[in-house]
């Protein structure tokens, strides 16, 4: 069984790393987690971003955060990507698989996945 004591070991391991981590990353991925987002499947999308950013070793520069309803419920799950000195990108009708693709192509590769953006969505 895991014990709370184990956390002490994790803490010791993390201490140096966290100290150098900047408080605000250069890139912010924001997932809508209000009723509309949750009902549309935002929880696995958020999870895919958290795990994907961690797996890609980008924790120091990319932060994943949650927000409430931004008013376009019919497009949920909605994910906004804010990058330094760039225009905000809004992805709509996201899934965990699409999240993985966005991490690969956009967050790591710098190419916006246009087909999932709100601009490409049929209104």
């Amino acid at each position: 069984m895991k014990s709370i004591e184990e956390l002490k070991a994790i803490k010791a391991k993390m201490a140096d790393k966290v100290a150098v981590r900047s408080s605000t990353g250069d890139t912010r991925i924001v997932v809508g987690m209000a009723t509309c987002g949750i009902a549309a499947g935002a929880r696995p999308v958020l999870n895919a971003f958290v795990e994907g950013v961690t797996a890609a070793g980008l924790v120091d520069t990319v932060t994943v955060t949650q927000t409430g309803c931004i008013g376009i419920c019919q497009y949920e799950p909605v994910v906004e990507v804010y990058e330094k000195d760039k225009e905000k990108v809004t992805y709509v009708k996201m899934t965990a698989d699409r999240a993985k693709e966005v991490i690969e192509k956009h967050i790591k590769g710098g190419e916006v996945v246009t087909e999932y953006t709100i601009g490409a969505a049929k209104i």
Binding site: L7, K8, K11, A15, V50, V59
Partner: peptide
């Protein structure tokens, strides 16, 4: 209480 103030519970390792 164990982690103290400097380590956030949102750190991937902790989550």
């Amino acid at each position: 209480e164990i982690l103290g103030d400097e380590i956030s519970l949102a750190e991937p390792e902790i989550l």
